[in-house]
Design a protein around this nucleic acid. Structure first.
Lengths: 229, 229
DNA sequence: GAAGAAATTGACTGTTTGGTCAACTTCTTT
DNA sequence: AAAGAAGTTGACCAAACAGTCAATTTCTTC
């Protein structure tokens, strides 16, 4: 039975329960809608339909279409940076880069809409993400660049431009979410399944690891020098 | 002095001169405008401003915004397929793939707007490009896939999934046009210059060639087997 | 240089857009 | 169970939108 404290805790937990639920629901359905048509191509009416709510209700929670869009974007950004966590100097390069690629490919498959919203935003000049790109992302890339330079200095991987290596990994992994329509058309399949994602992951791993003078076998072996420059 | 034939030739060459000039001018300025904001985000008023012409003039030539957009897209598509020309069985894999990558990187630099319009279209479901993707592009990829499988069968390069190899090359090269804002933010430079494009090209070449069991030196050597599986 | 074809353009229109608001219902608190 | 807070919603609005059109100018052809 709930005593005074439990009741108070229940009340505070309960207060804003509807609000939190609706905010999450609207942001999630909006992510899907924005992914399909971009910011300009998505109408408030369409967003309301996607959420199964009247248009005025969305305005009650978010005020404007732009504020709702920003909420969707912010919900996505944390994902991006967190994927880089495996890249630390203590780990073997092949293992760390392999884990990063797997995480990125996993997100492309699990959250394709998030990737598309992000891609559309960057593609059209990133008017809502300037700060994120020039501060958070830039700092994080600089940090991880030092890890890769450390590996190169120790002769643990070939000399590859770390920043352009990141550009290449981002491009190859995110393309499985962003350009899925093109892939489905070329492969002639209705949807990208496990087989396609595994073949893609193998190809990306191969290109990155061999490009860094490592092999796919290195992933599960701790310490190993590069096979060639 | 122009004789009867020369005059006739001049007349037919002259007829529709203005039309041809305006069509080209409008399509070119529209490519830039659509690249900045996508189809839905670009208004006819904005397209008119970009062309330096009244809105009604654009409608005189293209009828609707959608027809103008299709004209822009069609103007871009030929570029895509033509880049694949170097990939023929007679050439050495490193040389052919190297030439292809250089061509794609060159286009990303020379025609970034074209790349962005194409990317935006694919990203949002390719409603205007279904036919191109499932027919022209698919056929071309199938054709070039056979060339790569031929190289693999002859032991001239490592066993890599040819289709996913193309996905990787497209992603890595086009990202230099599509995601330039992100790159500029991370690199902290106002514009991507020759230095950045060369570093990018080197990285892409390295990843692809080493991933295919070839080396960057192979590019200029005709015949050579793979360095490892 | 006259006559017709092609090109240009300001003014206009019906529709769609993001956003507002006041009336109303449902929840929470005491 | 009363009262206020939080949430819901249909009807509405001004602005922006793609597209039209008739009047006018500029080109081409003979």
């Amino acid at each position: 039975m709930p005593g005074k404290q439990a009741a108070a805790a229940e009340e505070t937990a309960n207060a804003g329960r509807i609000r939190r639920g609706q905010l999450l629901h609207i942001v999630e359905s909006a992510e899907r809608a924005f992914a399909e048509a971009g910011f300009a191509g998505t109408t408030m009416t369409r967003l309301a339909e996607a959420a199964g709510l009247p248009k005025a209700n969305l305005h009650y929670y978010f005020g404007t279409k732009e504020k709702l869009y920003r909420a969707v974007l912010e919900n996505i950004l944390t994902l991006w940076l967190d994927d880089m966590a495996p890249i630390v100097p203590e780990r073997a390069p092949a293992e760390a880069l392999g884990a990063y690629i797997r995480a990125k490919m996993g997100h492309s498959r699990a959250r394709p809409h998030a990737s598309k919203v992000f891609a559309s935003e960057i593609l059209h000049g990133a008017p809502h993400l300037r700060g994120f790109l020039t501060h958070e992302l830039r700092r994080r890339v600089a940090e991880k660049t030092r890890v890769i330079e450390h590996w190169i200095a120790r002769g643990r991987m070939a000399k590859v431009d770390p920043v352009h290596l990141f550009f290449a990994i981002w491009a190859m992994t995110q393309t499985y979410a962003d350009f899925d329509v093109q892939m489905r058309a070329v492969l002639g399949c209705a949807a990208l399944g496990t087989a396609e994602y595994e073949a893609g992951e193998q190809t990306v791993l191969r290109l990155v690891l061999h490009g860094c003078g490592l092999t796919t076998e290195d992933i599960n072996e701790g310490e190993q020098g590069p096979c060639r420059s």
